[in-house]
Simulated assay, not measured.
Amino acid sequence: MIEVHLLRYALAAADSGSFSQAAARFGIKQSTLSKRIHYLEDRLGVALFRCSTQGVVPTDPGLGVLRKARQIVEDIDALDQDCAAIARGTAGLLRFGFHGSLGSGDLSAIIRDFRAAWPDVELAARERSRTRLLGALERDQIDFAVLSGQVQRAGIVSLSFWSEQVLIGLARGDPLCARDPLFWTDLRGVTFVISKVDPGPFLNDLVASRLSGPGFGPSVRVQDVRRENLFSFAGNGSAIVTTGVASEDDELVLRPVHDAFGATHLEQAIHWRRDNDSAALRRFLEMLAHRYGRPLPPH
Rank of each mutant, 00 (worst) to 15 (best):
V4I: 09
V4N: 15
A10I: 03
A12C: 09
S16V: 15
S18T: 07
F19T: 06
Q21M: 07
Q21Y: 08
A22F: 15
A23Q: 06
R25T: 03
R25C: 02
F26D: 00
K35I: 07
I37V: 15
Y39K: 11
L40S: 11
R43W: 09
G45K: 14
V46N: 13
S52I: 08
V56E: 03
V57F: 00
P58W: 00
G62Q: 00
G64T: 09
V65F: 01
A69I: 11
D77R: 00
C83G: 07
G89P: 07
L94P: 02
L94E: 00
F98Q: 01
L107E: 03
A124N: 14
R126W: 14
R128M: 14
R130V: 02
R132A: 14
G135F: 08
L137Q: 10
E138F: 08
D140G: 07
D140A: 13
Q141F: 13
I142D: 01
I142E: 02
I142A: 03
D143K: 00
F144P: 02
Q150E: 13
Q152G: 12
R153P: 15
G155T: 04
I156K: 10
S158A: 12
F161T: 05
W162F: 08
W162D: 00
S163H: 10
V166K: 05
R172H: 13
G173N: 05
D174V: 03
D174Q: 03
D174K: 01
L176R: 06
P181V: 05
G189E: 12
V190W: 15
T191S: 04
V193G: 12
V193D: 11
V197C: 12
V197E: 15
D198M: 11
P199N: 05
P201T: 03
P201S: 05
F202R: 08
F202P: 05
D205G: 14
L206S: 05
A208Y: 15
A208D: 12
S209Y: 12
R210K: 11
G215F: 09
F216I: 04
P218Q: 08
V220F: 01
D224E: 11
E228I: 05
L230M: 10
A239W: 15
I240V: 05
V245M: 02
V245G: 03
A246Q: 03
V253M: 14
L254H: 07
R255E: 07
R255L: 14
P256H: 09
A260F: 06
A260R: 12
A263H: 12
H265W: 13
A269Q: 10
I270W: 02
I270Q: 06
I270F: 14
D275G: 10
D275K: 14
D275V: 08
L281K: 00
R282K: 03
E286R: 05
E286V: 00
M287L: 11
G293V: 04
P295R: 10
P298I: 05
